[in-house]
Design a protein around this nucleic acid. Structure first.
Length: 409
DNA sequence: GTTGAGCGTT
């Protein structure tokens, strides 16, 4: 093999990143998506035809063209809405923006320093993506800041990333949450899907590599001991939903994707006339009292982002996961499942605005609340966000990183 | 000019 590394860039004008090939000369898609979250394939411009050629992708591996990798610059391909360049028809853009709007909600930024201005706030959050709105709340009489602001992002991914961490703004640690008000909170489709009929040789990496082609995978959970199913969490709930009901072949194994459903309060379920055999979710109650214990954030994505600090295990070896935390798909009971109904029910049941997110648990210090003293060390995935490069992320490492010993449910 | 959990003059 003539190359150990392959230059890959997000587009032809960007600076490439060299990515390591595997021993067999292939490139793992997960290697690519670790640097380019959401990337689902590669292409290169053929010197003669001047057109792009796609790179073969199979089972999470990118295979070199027949003539070898050559000296090309390889360009990432992204699924649908990741891409927002020219050439898209206006109608599509409108649809997409509308969809994003439905997903995004206003966010409240708490704990701003008195001196912070609207500019400060906007500029800070623009690191995470396009900011559609930033309002600093002031006392009408004095004009003094009330120490909080409302912001809104254009993309749901930005929103989730911002919600998932604390923010140092002008010298103070600030929290960003979904506001209590009625208007604010919007839809929260589950980002997690249940993958049935897994075999034991389907590793978390295999699953991640495979499902990354559909969108950014933020978590892979395989119960231990082996239980023939797993969970895949996507950053984009729509990607997750789009896969439900499908059969996929991964490493020759036919697996089935269906709705994952959170553990529900049984009384709630009864009240709401829902099938009551939801499964245990990696969810737990906590008496924890620090400042992270009552944040509002999409629970599914909390886990997705690896901050739940509760389920252990996941990708790659080493995760001495604590075993439980499996969930069953609603479909497993033999009852008919109407996905729309389930989604609606989950929303009704308060999913998407779960408070009481337990903290602690994550040994990595990731989101262990600062309860007392110094500000917390920024979580790992935070650091990539703060590189100001929203296109880069350790997505494929998340699973490995959060081998929490977790609280039990 | 002070303050530090909260929830948005329009």
């Amino acid at each position: 093999m003539s190359f150990e590394y392959l230059p890959v860039a997000e587009d032809e004008n960007e600076e490439p990143i060299e990515l390591p090939l595997e021993e067999d000369g292939t490139l793992m898609l997960s290697t690519v998506s670790a640097q380019f979250p959401g990337c689902c394939g590669l292409k290169y411009r053929h010197p003669e035809s001047k057109t792009f050629r796609g790179i073969r992708l199979r089972d999470g591996r990118l295979y070199p063209p027949p003539e070898g990798w050559g000296n090309h610059l390889f360009i990432c391909s992204f699924p649908k809405e990741h891409k927002r360049k020219s050439g898209e028809c206006t109608e599509n853009l409108l649809l997409k923006n509308k969809r994003n709007d439905n997903l995004c909600s206003d966010l409240i930024v708490l704990g701003l320093p008195w001196k912070a201005t609207e500019q400060t706030v906007r500029e800070y959050f623009e690191k995470f993506g396009e900011v559609l709105m930033a309002q600093l709340k002031r006392d009408p009489k004095t004009g003094m800041s009330k120490g909080f602001a409302f912001i809104r992002f254009a993309s749901y991914a930005s929103q989730m990333r911002v919600l998932a961490q604390r923010h140092m703004i002008d010298g103070r640690w600030c929290d960003v949450r979904i506001p209590n008000s009625k208007e604010g909170s919007v839809t929260s489709m589950p980002c997690k899907v249940f993958v049935g009929r897994c075999t034991e040789d389907l590793s978390a990496n295999d699953l991640r590599d495979y499902f990354s082609q559909f969108g950014e995978v933020t978590d892979v959970f395989i119960p231990k001991p082996f239980r023939a199913f797993s969970f895949i969490t996507f950053l984009d709930p729509e990607v997750a939903q789009s896969l439900c009901g499908q059969d996929h072949i991964i490493k020759g194994v036919s697996v089935n994707v269906s709705n994952a459903s959170p553990k529900q309060n049984k009384s709630n379920l009864a009240q709401r006339n829902l099938p009551s055999r939801s499964y245990e979710e990696h969810q737990h109650n906590s008496n924890n009292n620090n400042s992270w214990s009552s944040r509002s954030i999409d629970m599914v994505n909390m886990q997705a982002l690896g901050i739940s600090g509760q389920h252990g295990q996941t990708a790659v070896a080493g995760g001495a996961g604590q075993g439980q935390g499996g969930s069953m798909p609603l479909g497993m009971s033999g009852l008919p499942v109407n996905q729309a109904l389930v989604a609606a029910a989950l929303n009704q049941a308060g999913w998407g605005l779960i408070n009481n997110i337990p903290s602690g648990g994550s040994e990595q210090g990731a989101f262990a609340g600062p309860a007392s003293t110094a500000p917390p060390a920024p979580p790992n995935f935070l650091s990539w966000m703060q590189q100001g490069n929203s296109a880069q992320g350790p997505s494929s490492q998340w699973g490995q990183r959060h081998q929490s010993q977790g609280h039990s449910v």
